[in-house]
Simulated scan of single mutants.
Amino acid sequence: MSMFFLVLLFFVTSILSRAIENQTSELDKSSRIRAQLEKINKPPVKTINSPDGDIIDCVLFHDQPAFDLPELKDQNITLEPPEWPVGYNISEDTSAGDENIQLWSASGEECPEGTVPILRTTEQHLLRASNITRFGRKGGDGSRHEYAIAYVTGEQYFGARTDINIWAPKTNDLEFSLAQVWLTSGTFEDKNLNSVEAGWQVNNELYLNKNPRLFGYWTRDAYQTTGCYNTLCPGFVQTNKRVALGAAITPISSYNGKQFTLNVMVWKDPKSGNWWLSIGSGILIGYWPSSLFTGLKSHAEKIEFGGEIVNREVNGHTTTKMGSGHFPEEGFRKAAYFKNLNFVNSVKQLFTIPVSKVQEYADRPNCYDIKVSSSKYLNTHFYFGGPGKSPKCI
């Protein structure tokens, strides 16, 4: 056989081998996607198509992902409401956040009694993901996280409450921008960080559009192997039938125009020990079971409020914006803000956090900054955010 035919045979064999490898890889990826979708999605009693393209599945309460947890699987849970913190008067809470705050339920849609709304994860979601097995989790991808936050520490904390200004910041592909409250114990360095988090986010990897969305998150090992957003893994127990974690929220603030806020409160129920989430005027969304945690079984050691972005740019800084995309100095109706910073103390009382106790942290102040203050109408509050890449942020 001539050298020409030997070379030709080798060339054809190589192409066929690569084609078979690619086909095998695609089949393997497809089977992994199907397996992941079966884990996340539960059989719906009713399906609701949201105007923004989301699909909401109404799942029987005990069929939701949380009940895949061994410690919850066989429990006959009675939905006894939690004790509200002393000093929290539901009737006086006038912030935005009633049960029509989400696009899918704004027309009056709701899930039937005995079911809860779960945002459906589709193959399209997972095909966009940088890591299928870590879909719905923070960390583990080498991306840089940047912050502009206010925080308090040094005491035992049993809850936090605040009003978060709602925006829809521009974000790059596979990056996110959020505004949230964190309640934590342990440390990132010791890998024992426990955290419960809630607020709004724009996340191009997790969702299929750039609407701001209500979300929650938890971890007990510094985001290594435990925890996730919303109900994307067993953890958060959804109890509300008209408000879904992960679904888009409305209305949104506009620059130099009308401002809208989302009231968020996370606190430890003294009866059950579970960490409950409420929004607006006392609307219970659900809870993170105490059994998920180690340090947070007892109390939080730190409360943080503020913004976070992911920066995946290799050369220079990302153009992903935080908050309104404007710096704190621009003030009301232009910069994003948190107002009415509150904490729950050891005897379950809700108090305003004194401005003298609040510390600021911004790791890239030329890109995203924060300015804490106090006033008669906003109480302890702060403006935060920024444009990302700019002449002074490179």
Rank of each mutant, 00 (worst) to 15 (best):
R18D: 13
N230Q: 04
L126K: 09
P82K: 12
D63Q: 15
G280Q: 00
F158Q: 11
K389F: 12
M322G: 01
P85R: 11
R213W: 13
A106N: 13
F327M: 02
T261Y: 12
A19I: 08
A198D: 01
L174D: 14
V310G: 00
N311P: 04
N204R: 04
F11L: 15
K339M: 06
N131Y: 07
N345W: 04
Y88H: 09
L72C: 03
K389R: 14
S14C: 12
E83A: 12
L8C: 14
G159D: 07
H381M: 08
V358F: 00
V12G: 06
D363H: 06
L208R: 07
G53N: 09
L183D: 01
L174V: 11
H145I: 06
P328M: 04
F188D: 11
D173C: 00
T184A: 14
D74I: 00
E189I: 11
S130K: 15
L262K: 00
F10V: 10
I90M: 06
L341H: 01
R333I: 02
V237K: 09
G323R: 02
I370Y: 09
M322Q: 02
Q224Y: 10
F67Y: 09
L284C: 02
T13R: 01
S14V: 12
E123R: 13
G316M: 02
G142P: 01
F176H: 10
K302L: 14
T352V: 05
N22C: 00
I249W: 07
E80Q: 14
I149F: 00
Q64R: 01
G246S: 05
V237D: 05
A335T: 04
Y217I: 01
V12C: 09
G273L: 03
P65N: 13
W104L: 09
S107P: 00
S346Q: 14
I370A: 10
K170C: 03
I55C: 06
L292V: 06
L350A: 08
L119V: 14
C393E: 13
I15N: 03
L183F: 07
V237Q: 10
C111H: 10
K371P: 00
D57M: 12
I132K: 11
G186S: 07
W218P: 03
A247Q: 03
S291Y: 09
D190N: 13
G97P: 01
N204D: 15
E197G: 04
E80M: 10
A300R: 01
I166L: 03
L119N: 01
N366W: 08
I283K: 06
K376H: 08
G154V: 04
K73D: 12
I33L: 09
W200R: 01
K138W: 10
P365V: 00
W275L: 04
L206K: 05
K46R: 13
R312N: 12
I283D: 04
I40A: 11
Q156E: 15
V243S: 05
F61A: 12
E197L: 00
S356K: 10
P117D: 15
T380P: 05
A336D: 10
G159W: 07
V86S: 14
T47G: 05
R34V: 07
L6P: 00
C393S: 11
S30R: 08
I48A: 07
G306F: 03
V310H: 03
I40F: 04
